[in-house]
């Protein structure tokens, strides 16, 4: 052993790590040929490595994934909802459509704070009040938004007043009078008129088919 270079164990280890310079490798090989002790050590170490590497590959139990997932903390609700949307695209589309339409309806009601009314000849406007003057006759439906209506003459048609008042007066109205004040009533009115329109379409088509 006295003749062994001091760092020979170190070089041997580098060799076993597969991390050695060719010069060191040559030194090691030359020394191993001449020194039986180092040769024995080298063989034993190689054998040790082979022994450890003979360990067979181990597989996790078959229910490992399932058990692991069961141990995780519950996921955020947000992800759940997102996945639900992904799995039900049609329902998502319908829900989105419903939300958009109702939002539009309400925003229409709230945004149209301006005073407006159906244009008809003979109508007179006083501030935010629409007046059918005495002696005049207006034919056709009349809608007033965000304003009041006073009828002194004659009105042949229906009247709808949104966010306003019909002021009773001496005039004559031949149609129906409807006053709408609240968002919900506005919604109800829109739905009702929508149905009426749809019904009238059906009526027309049924007439045509007959």
């Amino acid at each position: 052993m006295k003749a062994c270079p001091e760092n020979i164990v170190h070089v041997m280890n580098d060799y076993l790590d597969g991390d050695i310079s060719s010069k060191d490798e040559a030194t090691l090989k030359a020394h191993l040929k001449s020194c039986s002790d180092c040769q024995k050590l080298y063989h034993e170490l190689s054998k040790t490595i082979a022994f450890v590497q003979s360990a067979s590959h181990i597989q996790a139990p078959s229910d490992f994934v399932q058990k692991t997932m069961a141990r995780l903390p519950k996921e955020k609700k947000q992800a759940n909802v997102q996945r639900w949307f992904k799995q039900h695209p049609l329902l998502t589309a319908v829900a989105l459509f419903c939300i958009m339409t109702s939002a539009m309806l309400f925003s229409n009601f709230n945004n149209e704070q301006q005073f407006s009314f159906t244009k008809q000849p003979n109508l007179v406007v006083e501030g935010e009040t629409v007046v059918v003057p005495e002696g005049e006759t207006v034919t056709g439906d009349l809608t007033v938004r965000n304003g009041d209506l006073r009828v002194e003459g004659e009105l042949h048609g229906d009247v709808t007043i949104v966010n306003g008042q019909y002021m009773a007066s001496s005039g004559v109205i031949t149609g129906e009078i409807e006053e709408i004040d609240k968002a919900f009533e506005w919604l109800w009115y829109t739905i009702k008129s929508g149905i009426k329109e749809a019904a009238s379409i059906f009526d027309n088509s049924s007439v045509q088919t007959e």
Partner: peptide, 12 residues
């Protein structure tokens, strides 16, 4: 992003 199913694939 909170998707637990994706983690199952990583465990796999």
């Amino acid at each position: 992003k909170g998707d637990q199913n994706a983690f199952a694939e990583i465990v796999e």
